[in-house]
Design a protein around this nucleic acid. Structure first.
Ligand SMILES: Cc1cn([C@H]2C[C@H](O)[C@@H](COP(=O)(O)OP(=O)(O)OP(=O)(O)O)O2)c(=O)[nH]c1=O
Ligand SMILES: [Mg+2]
Length: 746
DNA sequence: GGGCAGTTGAGGC
DNA sequence: TTCCAGCCTCAACTGCCC
């Protein structure tokens, strides 16, 4: 196998001057023959193939092509140079061996010993004594032990790390209120303004380059000293005119050191000239190998080989390469400071197994955790993704997009079950997994969803249709199913983290928790209730978008008739389409597929129930979190509270609907005083076969089967790209690169 | 052709 | 004796629909 596959990464701090040969031998021996090793081998082979394709492509390039591409790159360079900004002083601070340092601080016994934080499965980090043996982050504990038998492995304690991080952030805030944390242990600061306002305190000299260095360095030294004083932890820092350089610089004198790179073009180019490409954040193992194959080892090589690079890589990539070679990157942190979370997930690894019930249980537990997180953070998601890792380390993801954002446990759970089931069924051999994960993305806060924009069909059927959303808001807030009432009114003034989350959105609509978690029978009464009565729509008069409860298509409606007509048509077409079996729905076994339709695709529409129970859950979640901190049993409190709030919620729903006249969406001719009557009527109005059919036809997950085989390399068309790549604001220090070769180009 | 849904892969801490 | 995480972001790509 290529030496890079499992070999020790020596680009990280604390890896200098150790016996790499011996360490690699141990690593090799520890891994050989394992499934992990085989997987890595496969990956390496694929990469090797990709690289050899790339080299073949490169050797076919003509002098002419390269010359032209080089000239085009030169024009880009001019543009980049003209935009070079050397006016800011950016600092990157990175705590030294963070988790390990916290543990060592709290347990003096650990101080002189090689130690690591993590488990036998995986180490998160190690102290410098352990690094001397080659023990490092992302290394399994048992291998760490092989490298260093006396290694002490400490389990992580995130509460401590968060607390330490908070203290560090307080110090940061003194120097730049708009500092930007990239993780618990590192952040960027722009101290330009601080220097301007307070610089004189640090130096009596005038403002030439040398004194600038003195001032900035003195400030950062002071900041690091403050951090150490307050946390007993050391930090390293880099000072440079932009973020990428600052980041590289913070690694230069690690641990407990700092490095200053002056805002001077020549000095920067000098610095970059000998900088190994792997030191640059965003260049990882794969890109390093690709670039090395092109004889690019240090950043200045990127400049030298800019012609071929332009022809081989995507425009995003070669733009990025140029910026690295020139030592140019972001000088403003504004865009980074406002970053919002894009996904939330939880996953777990276990001994590989194909035990279906075990896998299903794991999935369900993960969903519970995820929902708890969502509720605690007061967010809903639109896309649910199931992640699985087979016992041979192949990772697969299966996603489902909901018509509306949700955080309902029922919905997530049934979706997860369905996706998992589908994979199990699709697998030739019994699906054997070692990891399952669940993720929600396309997030929005419950406030963003806007309570006034959610309305049930019940409400729609009533006269409220003609009211403006504002009127509805007012009037709704006077009912007991008040959707605008925020969480604190219901739960009391519970604490909420507002320091880092500027967006404070209290729960106006959340989800039902563990409601009818047991398998349930699907009756057409349920069906009507879930599909028709509680389906929400967006109120956007005069034309409104509305998700049809039958076909799930979004339809534009301007009157009740439009909807009824559409629903009629849908139901008719469903009835006439082929029907599989004729078993009455209410005796359909409690099969996952059946639950799916009614839960995952419809239950999310239970907006009224959500509001009430959602708030309740939110309350109990916060309670449970508090209890957890106090070391109490959380499960009990959840159960007790759920019960209580649940019933309250039901009452709200009832009272809110009591007086509304209802119209049958199928025959249109009847009106009913309450939902029960309507449902009874609809039982007859719709045939069981129809319902069954509808459910059957909407259960299979939508999947795109992409044959995205990264092993087949293609080459990009030689095109003229002259635009400067605008760095994505939400993607600060790193920029992923990928060869994008389109065969058609050659 | 643009936009959306879905999948995979690279990368970082 | 066995044994390789869990959280996150972004880019590239395919297929489908409008
Ligand atoms: C690299 C890495 C870090 N972490 C955690 C543990 C680290 O203490 C923390 C910060 O990461 P790093 O800053 O990369 O590492 P470090 O602080 O432990 O050591 P250094 O002195 O080189 O900065 O993030 C992981 O959980 N997994 C990883 O793969
Ligand atoms: Mg660190």
């Amino acid at each position: 196998m290529a030496p890079q596959t499992l070999a020790l990464n020596t680009h990280k701090a604390g890896m200098e001057g150790l016996d790499v040969e011996k360490i690699n031998e141990i690593l090799q021996k520890a891994s050989e023959g394992s499934k992990f090793y085989h997987h890595k081998q496969k990956c390496q082979k694929r990469l090797d193939a990709k690289i050899s394709e790339m080299l073949k492509f490169k050797s076919a390039l003509t002098e002419e092509q390269i010359k032209k591409a080089t000239l085009q790159m030169d024009r880009l360079i001019e543009e980049l140079e003209s935009s070079r900004d050397l006016t800011r002083t950016i600092v990157h601070v990175d705590m030294d061996m963070f988790y390990a340092a916290v543990e060592m601080r709290d347990d003096p016994n650990l101080r002189d010993k090689p130690m690591a934080v993590g488990g036998t499965g995986m180490l998160s980090t190690s102290n410098y004594a352990a690094r001397k043996f080659g023990v490092r982050a992302a290394m399994p504990g048992f291998i760490g032990k092989k490298l260093c038998p006396e290694l002490v492995i400490v389990p992580p304690d995130f509460t401590k790390y968060k607390a330490a991080s908070k203290t560090v952030q307080e110090v940061f805030g003194e120097y730049d209120p708009n500092f930007c944390m990239m993780s618990l242990d590192e952040g960027y600061l722009d101290i330009t303004d601080y220097i301007h306002d307070n610089g004189s305190r640090y130096s009596e000299y005038s403002e030439d380059d040398v004194s600038s260095e003195n001032v900035a360095s003195a400030i950062v030294r002071e900041m690091r000293a403050k951090i150490q004083e307050k946390t007993q932890l050391t930090a390293s820092a880099g000072i440079a005119p932009n973020t990428r350089l600052a980041k590289v610089c913070s690694d230069m004198n690690k641990p407990n050191g700092q490095f200053y790179l002056p805002p001077n073009r020549e000095k920067i180019l000098e610095f970059v000239a000998t900088l190994p490409i792997r030191k640059v954040s965003g260049i990882g193992n794969v890109m390093e190998q690709q670039l090395k194959a092109l004889e690019i080892n240090v950043c200045s090589d990127l400049m030298e080989k800019r012609g071929p690079l332009r022809l081989i890589f995507s425009d995003l990539n070669y733009n990025h390469f140029l910026m690295i070679a020139l030592g140019i990157s972001d000088t403003r942190l504004d865009a980074w400071t406002e970053r919002e979370r894009k996904s939330i997930s939880t996953e777990t690894t276990f001994r590989g197994t194909n035990d279906r019930s075990f896998l299903v249980k794991q999935t369900e537990d993960l969903c519970r955790e995820l929902v708890e997180d969502l509720i605690q953070k007061d967010i809903l998601g639109k896309i649910f993704t199931l992640k699985i890792k087979t016992t041979d380390f192949q990772i697969k993801t299966r996603a489902h997009t909901f018509p509306e954002a949700t955080c309902s446990l029922d919905v997530l759970m049934s979706t997860a079950r369905r996706l998992l089931q589908h994979e199990m069924d699709a697998s030739a051999q019994p699906l054997s997994l070692r990891l399952i994960g669940v993720r929600m993305s396309n997030l929005m806060s419950s406030a963003e969803l806007g309570p006034s924009r959610q309305v049930t069909l019940t409400q729609m059927f009533s006269k409220s249709l003609s009211r403006t959303s504002q009127e509805r808001k007012f009037s709704d807030s006077s009912t007991s199913s008040d959707t605008t009432k925020n969480l604190s009114e219901i739960s009391g003034n519970h604490t909420r983290n507002t320091t880092t989350e500027s967006k404070v959105s209290l729960s106006e609509k959340s989800c039902s928790f563990d409601k009818n978690n047991s398998k349930q029978r699907v009756t057409n009464k349920n069906f009507i209730e879930k599909f028709l009565v509680k389906s929400p729509m967006k109120l956007k008069p005069p034309k409104m978008k509305y998700d049809c409860p039958v076909c799930f298509q979004e339809i534009e409606v301007d009157s009740l008739d439009t909807i009824n007509t559409h629903v009629d048509k849908c139901l008719e077409s469903k009835t006439s389409s082929q029907v599989s079996g004729s078993s009455p729905v209410n005796v359909v076994p409690t099969d996952i597929e059946v639950i799916d339709i009614c839960e995952s695709d419809i239950a999310k529409h239970d907006s009224d129930e959500w509001k009430c129970k959602g708030n309740a859950k939110h309350v109990l979640c916060n309670n449970s979190l508090r209890e957890r901190e106090l070391g109490k049993n959380t499960k009990t409190s959840i159960d007790v509270n759920t019960e209580k709030y649940h019933s309250e919620g039901e009452e709200h729903v009832e009272s809110a609907r009591e007086k509304q006249a209802l119209l049958c969406p199928v025959c249109k001719s009847e009106s009913f005083e309450n939902e029960l009557n309507l449902n009874c009527h609809l039982d007859e109005c719709l045939s069981l076969r129809t319902i069954n059919d509808i459910m059957q036809s909407s259960t299979s997950p939508r999947m795109s089967h992409t044959s995205n085989d990264a092993g087949t390399s293609f080459f990009r068309t030689v095109q003229n790209y002259s635009q400067v790549c605008k760095p994505h604001p939400s993607d600060p220090p790193r920029k992923k690169q990928k060869i994008s070769h389109n065969k058609s180009d050659t």
